[in-house]
């Protein structure tokens, strides 16, 4: 009987000690903010386009952390959905068509001789990628443009085009091989057949 009581007493004592340690750690190592939001935000493409219905990527990250669907981001596309699904351990669903379709990377280009200098696009740009002043011609800094489309709508003279960014020799990347039972010519030229031939 005594041993049983002693065991219980020891366990209670231990639990109290560990509880105290945990309680202290909770206060001492408290993390401000919600780290999951930061992680989600890091996966989003940061175009700040608002196509998800939120004013920017971070608000959408917060919404996802609060349970919104992960398939509302057309610029991120399926890759972002997959990454979010991996992070949140949920099922990867196809992109929600209501928020737009995934498109190739684009940048805004202002037809500069038609620009009347109204600054409306400058105000609309979420990343300050449009340069100009009132009654002065505006132009887009192509390197900073996220291709979010937000400047197109406010333009009163429709002088902004969304131009697809073409592939150049510098940005080109190798295709994935077709897989089993396919042949590809654009690869290492020598193979065993060549050895046989000689």
């Amino acid at each position: 009987m005594f041993t049983v009581l002693l065991a219980i007493a020891i366990l209670v004592l231990l639990s109290l000690i560990f509880g105290a340690i945990l309680g202290y750690a909770n206060v001492r190592f408290h993390v401000e903010g919600d780290p999951i939001v930061d992680q989600i935000d890091a996966l989003l493409p940061q175009t700040q386009c608002g196509q998800c219905g939120h004013p920017g990527c971070r608000p959408y990250a917060e919404a996802i952390a609060n349970g919104e669907a992960i398939n509302h981001c057309p610029p991120g596309g399926q890759a972002t959905i997959q990454a979010l699904a991996d992070l949140l351990d949920v099922e990867a669903v196809p992109l929600d068509g209501d928020h737009g379709a995934e498109s190739a990377k684009r940048v805004a280009v202002i037809r500069e001789d038609e620009c009347i200098g109204c600054t409306k696009c400058i105000q609309a740009c979420p990343v300050d990628a449009i340069l100009g002043a009132a009654k002065q011609m505006h132009t887009v800094i192509a390197d900073e443009c996220t291709g979010c489309d937000l400047c197109v709508e406010p333009c009163p003279v429709d002088c902004i085009d969304m131009v697809e960014v073409g592939v150049t020799a510098k940005t080109w990347s190798w295709d994935k091989p077709q897989g089993i039972a396919a042949t590809s010519l654009n690869i290492i030229a020598t193979d065993r057949q060549a050895e046989v031939a000689h």
Binding site: I180, T190, D191, Q193, A194
Partner: peptide, 16 residues
């Protein structure tokens, strides 16, 4: 390298 077909035949299909 201007190879003839006999010299560098097209690679065989990929297998598992």
């Amino acid at each position: 390298l201007a190879a003839s077909k006999k010299e560098l035949p097209p690679p065989a299909p990929e297998q598992a």
